[in-house]
Structure formats: structure tokens, C-alpha cells
């Protein structure tokens, strides 16, 4: 065991970990950040994707100790920090995933949303092909990816219009549906 000083979602965290513990184990079982999921055990599914200095990596294939010195972002840190308003503010990617039906079982989606966010960090206007490429390391078994890609495209359009970070879930009927999200 050694004590690791990690920076996770902007917070300095100290955690005791064995050398053979992965970052995913430490996030989930030591720090209670259970939003990062374990789906395949060994780097085949992408559900454990977190951002390392803004870039997507698989936390199941990252030793916890190697996270020291990097800024780690998990799904719990994707939304901007609360600004004191009562209305929760989410990342436009999260809002669009919620609006477009991309969250069926939701299990792969923390990793998926982080991959999408990493894409938008470097490419504000990705083509559909670039979205497919960027998400090609995240397996989803529910959606057929259609509504996920629609969600990313919706987030891109809303960010461009400056209105992506709307409230999380007002629960009201008839919020504006995403373009193309609803069949005729």
C-alpha cells in the first residue's frame, strides 16, 4: 500500500492503494466515484473511460499510481461546478444525451459521454464520421448508436448557438426535442 495524491475532478484526493490496483478500482471502491463502469475487465468495452488531462483513457488499464500528476475527470466531474444557482447545470453533452434518448440502460454512457466531451474539446464542429471515429472505442449494446450520434450532433449545434448547458431535467412535458430525434 502506498498513499497516492490524486487530482480528480479538480479535487485533491489522498488514497491508499496497492501497486496492482487499477485506477478504476480506486475510483469505484476507494473514492466512491462509481459513475465509471466496469464492463469487460480488460480494455475491450470503453465503459471505464475517464479523461486524463482531457484525453480519454481506460481506467481499467491504468494503474492507480500512474494517475498521480494528471488531472483526472470522471463522469461525476463532467458537469461544471455549481455556481450557487439552484438549477443544476450539466455539460451540454449530458443534456443532449438525456434529450435524445441516448441513455437506455445508461451503463456505457459515462464513458461514452466522456469520449464525446474529449472530441468536442479539440473539435468544435466534428463531422458524423469524426464522431463515429471518436466513439469507436465505447461499446453500447442498447441504442445502435443512432441516438448517441444524434445527441453529440445536438450538443454541437447547441454549443454553437450558446444554449447547450440548459437545466438537467425540468421534468416537464414538451421540452424541445432534438432535431431529427423524433421520427415523422
Amino acid at each position: 500500500m502506498r498513499v497516492l495524491q490524486l487530482e480528480i475532478n479538480g479535487d485533491a484526493r489522498e488514497v491508499a492503494a496497492h501497486d496492482h490496483w487499477t485506477l478504476l478500482e480506486v475510483l469505484r471502491y476507494s473514492l466512491g466515484l462509481v459513475g465509471s463502469k466496469q464492463g469487460c475487465d480488460k480494455g475491450d468495452c470503453g465503459s471505464c473511460t475517464v479523461l486524463f488531462d482531457g484525453k480519454p483513457v481506460l481506467s481499467c488499464l491504468t494503474l492507480a499510481a500512474s494517475a498521480v500528476g494528471h488531472q483526472v475527470t470522471t463522469i461525476e466531474g463532467l458537469a461544471p461546478k455549481p455556481t450557487g444557482t439552484l438549477q443544476p447545470v450539466l455539460d451540454p453533452v449530458q443534456v443532449a444525451f438525456n434529450d435524445c434518448g441516448a441513455l437506455q440502460c445508461g451503463f456505457c454512457q459515462p464513458g461514452m459521454m466522456l469520449s464525446a466531451r474529449a472530441l468536442l474539446n479539440t473539435n468544435a464542429e466534428p463531422s458524423r464520421e469524426e464522431i463515429h471515429q471518436a466513439l469507436s472505442g465505447n461499446l453500447c449494446r442498447c441504442t445502435g448508436y443512432t441516438q448517441i450520434v444524434q445527441a453529440v450532433e445536438t450538443a454541437v449545434a447547441r454549443i454553437a448557438q450558446g444554449d447547450g448547458a440548459s437545466a438537467s431535467n425540468d421534468g416537464a412535458a414538451g421540452h424541445s426535442p432534438p432535431d431529427g430525434g423524433v421520427p415523422a
Binding site: G43, G46, T62, S115, Q133
Partner: peptide
């Protein structure tokens, strides 16, 4: 090689 995350790592 592999997928996007594994090319990052």
C-alpha cells in the same frame, strides 16, 4: 492500432 483510448495510452 486498437481504438481511440488505447491509442492515447
Amino acid at each position: 492500432v486498437a481504438g481511440p483510448q488505447l491509442r492515447t495510452q
